[in-house]
Amino acid sequence: MISLEGVSHDYGGGALFRDVTVQLEPGSFYFLTGPSGAGKSTFMKICYGELKPSTGTVTLLKRDLASMTRDDLAQARERIGVVHQDCSFLDHLTLEQNVALPLTATGRPISDSDLEDLMGWVGLTDRADAKPPTLSGGERQRAALARAIVAGPSVLLADEPTGNLDWEMSQRLLMLMIELNRMGTAVLIATHDLNLIRFAKAQVQARVIRIAGRTLQLAGAEL
């Protein structure tokens, strides 16, 4: 699905991480952890092609990121669901329209009942007609997750998807991601929340990787 080979990324002042190699296989479930500023969000952005690495090879759905055109990248993103940390929306559209955006933007049909079910799953049925600026942080995160999965992606990349949610809602959303994973979707979640990782490991075979000391390491054996 997505593979990084010998990837390094520099931010002017120096390397954020070096020589990272990882493969996100179909049906795999990963957690990405690490201290603030270690480069988790940058790593995620490289995984969906918003950033190009300083060195190394990134392969998105069997295509080399370096040789992809903007349309190639758009085509790849049809199959990659992303929950961004900043949860950007189109503020002039309703929440429901925002959630349906990946289908709208790629001309795919939208099933009203599926959309309603999804809005119900993330607990936003009552807020379907609300505009994003009126949403709370938690509501934005739930909407961002709904938007990321509405098109049935092959890969789900979620950057701190439960940071503003209570434990009950975090578990609910995690179960949604686990269900998707059981249906074959590869999942990568960047998070600080160790309880969330413990909860997931009880449900699914999840691997934990950690960015620390500018390298990527396997971790989480103790969890």
Partner: peptide
């Protein structure tokens, strides 16, 4: 630009 960024991230092509 923000609208364009969001549209790009959800898979919209330049033509759309």
């Amino acid at each position: 630009r923000q609208v364009i960024r969001v549209l790009r991230l959800v898979g919209a092509r330049d033509r759309f």
